[in-house]
Amino acid sequence: MGPVPQVKSIQVEQDLAHQRLFWKIERAGWLLMVLLIGAALLGLSGAGGRLNQATARAEGVELEYQPFMRQLAPSQLTVRINRAAGDGFTFRLDRDYLSQLQIQAITPEPDSVTAVRDQLEFKFPADESSPLSVKLDIQPEAVGTVNGGIAHGDKHLDFKQVVYP
């Protein structure tokens, strides 16, 4: 460090050029804070908010999911499926997707969960009324972009979620 400069009669490290530049940066920082809060209120930082609800649809199946999740924080998937002919209610989720999160609960509970190639098939009692709404409480473990896939019969839906650290 150099010697402390003298401003008029007082010896003080005042640097007005730096101070003026910093005031500008400070104001930009405030704007950034407002934008961050706005984005969070809209849901872009995960948890609740208008922009953190998305729906993907295909014939006979509808998926509600949160595009923005937080690592180890609870999130939900809601799957609505129509009864398949003579087959009760089934849907399949990509195992790749499931390996990146934990399923905490499934409501209602499936009759069976079986591995079918690279997917897990969830089968529900056939006597439920159609369409059946299934809620999956999930908790993402990996950080980053998570690509999901859900299948119902021969229909397949892809969806993408971002997990914040």
């Binding site: 460090m1 150099g2 401003v7 008029k8 007082i10 003080v12 490290e13 005042q14 640097d15 730096h18 101070q19 910093f22």
Partner: peptide, 20 residues
């Protein structure tokens, strides 16, 4: 901060005369 005055200014700011 000890090595560089510039770093110190950015991290801690500088004193400012507010009345003369």
């Amino acid at each position: 901060k000890r090595r560089s005055q510039r770093v110190e200014k950015w991290l801690d700011g500088t004193p400012l005369i507010v009345l003369e």
